[in-house]
Structure formats: structure tokens, C-alpha cells
Design a protein around this nucleic acid. Structure first.
Lengths: 326, 326
DNA sequence: TTGTATGCGTTATCAG
DNA sequence: CTGATAACGCATACAA
């Protein structure tokens, strides 16, 4: 079933049917005739052919580092909400934390199959930037600050600074830190810097063995909590770069009957769903993930509609969630 | 940049370039000439035009009820793994638990834009079945049993039966149940039936006010735990249809200083990430979510390649995770 | 082994 | 307001 057959059945030209489908610049009479035929036949226009002509797919590519993460799924939910509402679809690509795959996906996407790209960034290597700059379709970066395009990110530095300040004011001085790779500027660098600067403000010197780095997964927290405790007998708090990592640390502490926060205080970032259910509940930072997705998608669609609107960098706020673990 | 220009630059016909791109039925000489031009120009064939000709998009539509769920994101991760490997892309549609939206998405998808559909089912109404049956492209249903197509699902009934049996054998007799809508056969009906049958085996009669129903979200657990406790003074255990619901119940119990499992035992389904970190850790059921996604995607791609392979129904196993909350 | 010609289903242009 | 016609970029039957 195609537009020609519909035209024939309705006694009009294909062009008129096309008008009916789009602008709708035709007489009431023909409109009804066409409507009737389409209703009877259940005709659906070919998206491919439309795309071939219009160069618009109404599909947005979304690249994420992993799917089973509380924070990321919230961002994706926010994106999906906007896209849905505006009649766009979402092509989801999961890199499983392999950053070369991001480049691969961007290259796949630019093969005319998406109208725009949303990159939920972890690392932005020079190679990434090169590929992105060569992109002719609009894109936004979420979660990382960058000057190459519009980005919407969180105030990781201040969040870490204030959270650390809070922990210190609660009487903790020997604070261990479990972070992630510095290739991730937002989570790896900024959160750690906020932590260190807050310590400095309080004139606390940190021995190197109180700082650990690992993956984004729970076992990082588990293993490095173990390492921190065995290497630092005076340690009285652990700050983890993400809630997931904090969960791993808590698991280790629980298994070894170490009391939280009595023996060791623990805090994380991201306000994962379980943070409020744990006992003691986890002190953490609320970021506006859903809003991040909504803002990003909204801007991207705007940009697609009006390519000349200027790029922007948008920093979102945060909220310290003061729970029982500190 | 299109195939004609490449052909001109390489001094061959467009058809030859097309052959180079596909079967590759040409002389070494021309092959190299074309390769050189493509390399220099960075030419990428138009997916749309290819699709318009071949009717293949290499895109699979995946419809899910919500994204921010441990279990669903695992299934999606499994699907993504397979699709990636086979050069397919994933169009993700999130219904936010509105089942009419599923139908909407199926209708959108069948507009020639996907080669197949994976439906992560919650409810399969007659309307759903009608729309699915009309579908001309292959599809599979995950998480629900159905006879209209290939489905891969979990043994919810036996899991609930054995888990309940375990709870009873641990000395609990006044067990409350917090479930979900019966429109969801797998989670709403089968888990509850397994629960009730296990009680019956032990000759335990259950007053109606020990059974509650609500949403898939934490507040269902929270509110209904409150209701159960206020209405049943002898209650000594609560079985929840999902871990998320159990987390809500635990939150209520914690807030009211009710000891788990001393005063009330709690169990759930799905082995959410936090289940092992909670203290006490949550007794739950491990389902093979990732495998479900992998199996589903693999079968779907097989079906696309060979449309005449027969449909099948595949029931996956489970494992009771005996933790401290019971 | 290669090239020519045609059509996939739609939209845009332009004349009527 | 409407219709004929020409693209969009590619793959394939067929001829060479």
C-alpha cells in the first residue's frame, strides 16, 4: 500500500495525498475522500521514503556508558519523556564503559540515521572531540562540561566540597576517598578536587594511602574499603565517588561488623534508590538527573528546529542528603 | 556525497560501487579504485535509501514499562549485548507503565522502521494480542507467557511457592502479601498464586486483609506495610511481589523501629542490587534477567533471518537467595 | 565482470 | 487549490 494507490482509490493525485498527510492544503471534499480511504485501508506512509526526501528521521541517538545504573536510567527517563512528547524516537546505544565504542556509535549514528545525538559522557578524549567536531548534526553532552558543544552538567566540585565539609564538621578527620578514573572529569576529577580542597580548608593533610581509585562498580567500593582499613588504622570515614561504590564499601563494613557511622562514616553521590532504605541510611548528594535529561533533550530538539540558536553550558545544582551514615 | 559521485570519481558505474558495498562481485582493480575514493571522501551510504530498497533497517524496537528498574535494565543490557554484536541497533520505547502506550509504540514501530520487536510485557490485554497478531514483522514477548508468539519468561509461580515454603519453614505463619495488579499475569497472578498454594499446603488459612495490592513502586510497599501492620496484629512476615516493593516495606518498618526479621520477616523477588547490601540483607529470588534479554534478542534475530523457524515458549529457572531478612 | 535502466515511496516544484 | 513530474540515494534485473 503506497501513496499512489491511496491517490487512485480516493480519486486524487499522489501529491494531494501527500498534502493531506503534511501541511493539509486542500479542499474539504478531497480531505474527506482521502481520510475515508486511509481509514479503510489502514495505510501508513513509509518512514524510509519520507526520510529519504526530507532528511529527517525523527530519531535521536542516545549514547550511555551503562544501562543498569540508577542515575543513568533517570537521565534516560527524562530524555524519553521529552522525545515521546515531541514525536521523536530514541535509539539507545550502550557502550558498557568502553569509550572507544562511543566513537563507533557516533560514527554509526551520523550515517544519516538520527537527527541528533545525546552523549552521556564519561570520558571526552581528544579523539572524542575530533569526532564530535566533525559531526554535522546537532548534539549535546550530558554530565560533563565541555566547550565543543552544548553541555548540561552537575556541580560535582561544590557538591564534593560541601559534603566533605559536612563530614568534617561531624567530627571526622581521617577520611578515606574511593574515586574513579581521572579520565572522567566530572566524577573522577571534580569530585576528588572538591574533597581535597575541603580538607585543605580545614588544614587536614591527607596521606596518599587514603586515596583509592577503581571502577564504577560495587566491587571497587568493596575492595578499596578493605584496602583503606588495612592500611589506615585511624580512618574514621570513607567518601565514595558514587553511591554504587559506597554500597560496595558498606557491604564490606557490614560483613566485618564495622559500625556505620560509629566506627566509620560513609557517604556517596547520586542518591541511589537504596540510599534511603539502608540502615543506617546513606548520606549522599542529590543531583538533578531527570532534569538533566529533560533539559538536554529539549535543547537538542530546539537546536534541530533552529540550527542557529547558540550553544550553552548549563550547570545544575545539587542537594546534600544528610542521612544517618555520617 | 552519493553513490553516483563516488562512481564518477572512481571511473566506474554506480552499480559497481553498489556491488563493492555489498556482495563484492568485481575485479581487484576496480575494487581498489573504489576503496581509494571512499577512503578519501569519507563516503557513507545512506541508510534510508538502502532501507527503501531492501526493506531492512537493522533496527529492533524494544518496548519496556519503565527504565529505572534493576530487573528491566538487566534485560535491556542483555538485549543490547546481542544486538550490538550482530550489527543491529535498538530503538527503545518506555511506556512508563501505561499499557495503552505499548499499543501506540507497536503501531509506530510497524511503520517500517524496525525489523523486529521485543516486548517486555506487563499486561497483555486482548487489545494487545490483536495488535500483535496483526503484526507482519517478527516479535518476541519477554517476561510473560503467551501463546501468540515466542515468549521467554520466568518461573514466577514455583519461585513464589518455594520462597513461601521457605518462609513458613522458618517459623512464620501470619504472612502478609503485597502484590501488584492481576493484569500482570507473571507478577500479579502467578507469584500470588504460588504464595497462596504454599500456604494451603501447610494448611494455613489467610484472612483477606493480609493481602494487599498496589503499584510497582516503593510507595506501594511503604503504604501497604503500614496497612498490614495496623490491620493485623499477629503478622510476622511480609512477602512482596518485587524487591522494589519490599524496599518500601522495609523503609516503613525501619522508620517505626520494627525489627527484621525478629518482629517481621520480609522477602521479595528479583534480587535487586541493594538486596545484598541492606542489613539485614533481603531474602529474595534471583531470576535470569540478562539471559532473558540475550535469549530473546538471539531468537528474534534468528527469526528475522529465517522467518519459518517455529515459535517457542521458554521458561527460565530461578534461585532463592536466602538472606537475613527471613 | 561491468554498465544501463528502473523502481523503492515520498515530497517539492512548478505550471495550471 | 490541484496535478504532473522530477528528484532523494540506492540495489537489482538485465543486457552487454
Amino acid at each position: 500500500m503506497n501513496i499512489n494507490q491511496i491517490a487512485k482509490l480516493a480519486g486524487v493525485s499522489p501529491a494531494t495525498v501527500s498534502r493531506y498527510l503534511n501541511n493539509g492544503y486542500l479542499s474539504e471534499e478531497k480531505r474527506q475522500a482521502i481520510a475515508k480511504v486511509i481509514d479503510e485501508t489502514g495505510y501508513i506512509p513509509s518512514t524510509q521514503a519520507q526520510t529519504l526526501r526530507t532528511k529527517k528521521t525523527k530519531i535521536i541517538g542516545v549514547i550511555i556508558p551503562k544501562i543498569d545504573s540508577d542515575s543513568i536510567s533517570q537521565v534516560v527517563a527524562g530524555i524519553g519523556e521529552v522525545l515521546n512528547e515531541k514525536g521523536y524516537k530514541m535509539l539507545l546505544a550502550n557502550t558498557d564503559n568502553h569509550d572507544e565504542k562511543e566513537i563507533e556509535f557516533i560514527n554509526t549514528f551520523k550515517q544519516n540515521i538520527v537527527d541528533g545525538i545525546i552523549l552521556l559522557g564519561t570520558t571526552l578524549t581528544p579523539k572524542h572531540k575530533k569526532v564530535l567536531k566533525d559531526l554535522t548534526i546537532p548534539y549535546v553532552v550530558l554530565g560533563q562540561q565541555t566547550d565543543i558543544s552544548t553541555c548540561i552538567f552537575h556541580d560535582d566540585y561544590t557538591a564534593a566540597y560541601e559534603l566533605t565539609d559536612y563530614i568534617i564538621n561531624k567530627g571526622h578527620k581521617n577520611i578515606g576517598y574511593i574515586g574513579v578514573t581521572e579520565k572522567d572529569i566530572a566524577v573522577g576529577v571534580n569530585r576528588r578536587k572538591g574533597f581535597l580542597d575541603a580538607l585543605e580548608k580545614h588544614n587536614i593533610k591527607l596521606p596518599a594511602k587514603l586515596i583509592k581509585t577503581g571502577s564504577f562498580y560495587m566491587d571497587n567500593g568493596y575492595e578499596n574499603a578493605k584496602a583503606l582499613l588495612s592500611q589506615n588504622k585511624n580512618i574514621d570515614a570513607i567518601l565514595c565517588a558514587t553511591d554504587t561504590i559506597a554500597l560496595g564499601a558498606i557491604k564490606y563494613l557490614n560483613e566485618n561488623k564495622i559500625k556505620i557511622p560509629g566506627d566509620i562514616a560513609v557517604a556517596g553521590f547520586g542518591e541511589s534508590k537504596s540510599s534511603s532504605i539502608l540502615s543506617p541510611s546513606l548520606t549522599t548528594v542529590h543531583f538533578y538527573y531527570r532534569d538533566c535529561g529533560i533539559e538536554g533533550a529539549t535543547f537538542l530538539l530546539d537546536k534541530i528546529a533552529k540550527p542557529d540558536i547558540p550553544d550553552k553550558a548549563m550547570k545544575l545544582g545539587f542537594e546534600i542528603i544528610k542521612n544517618q551514615s555520617v
